[in-house]
Design a protein around this nucleic acid. Structure first.
Lengths: 214, 214
DNA sequence: CGCCATCCTGATCGAACGAACAGGGAACGT
DNA sequence: ACGTTCCCTGTTCGTTCGATCAGGATGGCG
């Protein structure tokens, strides 16, 4: 029978803590995506967030835990964007749905290249971080993408290509220009953050995948 | 006036040194591509090469120099493969040339995913390593690719898409499945090193880019 | 044969890393 | 008003990194 005094009083967290937590996560997303997990240092992340380094271990158990929070953050943003778009497209035919969802995906990848930068870094080798990211975030999106492509393939509105290949063509052709934005700028002078460039790229990918520009 | 004894006698290097140098470079390619520049350690590279760690600093000035050697090695392999293929296609019409070069490029990316893994890591941020890789290796291939696409676009055999977009669609759609091979295996069960899978992917990309399977 | 450049190793350096610790100041509950 | 909890910082620990150094073994050349 526990006495009342033995139970430690749990006090509500202060709102300022959430704000700094978010600043740290944003800095972590930025640096993890640019420098990879090993290249980004906790001191560098703390500096970009404007806090001291030990604060990272106060809010997050370890560098690994902070990485999880950063990955959860960027994927939550993508999932929110896509599900919101999908909800607005209920009742529309699947081909139009697919076209607009692909455009939304490409636009998101252009505005948030950090996501695919992190995916590219971690998914090329097995490991605990790849485990977490694939099972928690990538697989659900993969399953939904495959399902949509399968429906479209049955109706013949998409070329007769196995969905796995279509998936990697889409996730390769769509974001790469923006993942490699610094290289693109230097090679071609094209600025991948320009709205016109983003739209042109979405047009290009859609015209190849679906035959015509929507 | 230098005396004869003051000039250090230069002796021919032994062939065994070249062999170990190559083993080190091969190990470096392997680890740099898997773990990125910061994630790969000189001790790890030495271990995979079967030598001791200080030997890396004997054969290469620094970790950075070893990275240059590794990058030069993988790009030399790609350039040799593509130029050999191009030489065998002299006199063939440009469309067939493009189709077969794209297939060769995809096959190479599947058999040597290390190249695009390294490119993806370094080209997402500016820096001395990105400088080196872009100016020394990527830009020449980019120029040639753009030139070929421009010719094809004039003849109307390729969709009316700005060459920059076609370039990043090709370099994204082609190699991504093999760059992310571990993820692909886990997600779909498909083995990206299978010849049949490689061929299917090349078919898919070619059919989207050129309309029909060659 | 004997010298010496070449090839390689064991030991070790300073620097930078992630993490832990002790403590201080601000804010909330009583 | 007081005490406890929360939020944050300065300092430091042990480890691991890339790089250096002294020295041993090997093999070609005079």
């Amino acid at each position: 029978m526990p006495s009342r005094s033995a139970a430690p009083t749990v006090r509500a967290p202060r709102p300022s803590a959430d704000a700094t937590r978010e600043r740290i996560v944003a800095a972590a997303v930025s640096l993890f995506s640019e420098l990879s997990f090993d290249g980004a240092t906790t001191r560098g992340i703390a500096a970009r967030a404007g806090v001291t380094q030990p604060l990272l271990n106060y809010h997050f158990q370890s560098k690994e835990t902070l990485w999880h929070a950063a990955v959860d953050s960027v994927f939550a943003s993508l999932e929110a964007t896509l599900t919101e778009r999908a909800l607005g497209l209920r009742g529309v035919d699947e081909l139009t749905q697919a076209k607009l969802l692909v455009r939304e995906f490409i636009t998101f990848s252009a505005r948030h290249p950090e996501l695919h930068r992190i995916v590219m870094q971690e998914s090329k080798a097995d490991g605990p971080r790849a485990d977490y990211m694939v099972e928690r975030h990538i697989r659900p999106m993969y399953e939904r993408t495959i399902a949509l492509f399968s429906v479209l393939a049955e109706r013949g509105v998409v070329p007769d290509i196995a969905p796995v290949h279509l998936y990697y063509i889409l996730t390769g052709a769509g974001p790469t220009m923006f993942v490699l934005a610094p290289e693109c700028r230097r090679l071609s002078g094209v600025e991948p953050t320009d709205d016109a460039v983003i739209e042109a790229h979405a047009d290009a990918v859609c015209s190849l995948l679906f035959g015509v520009t929507p």
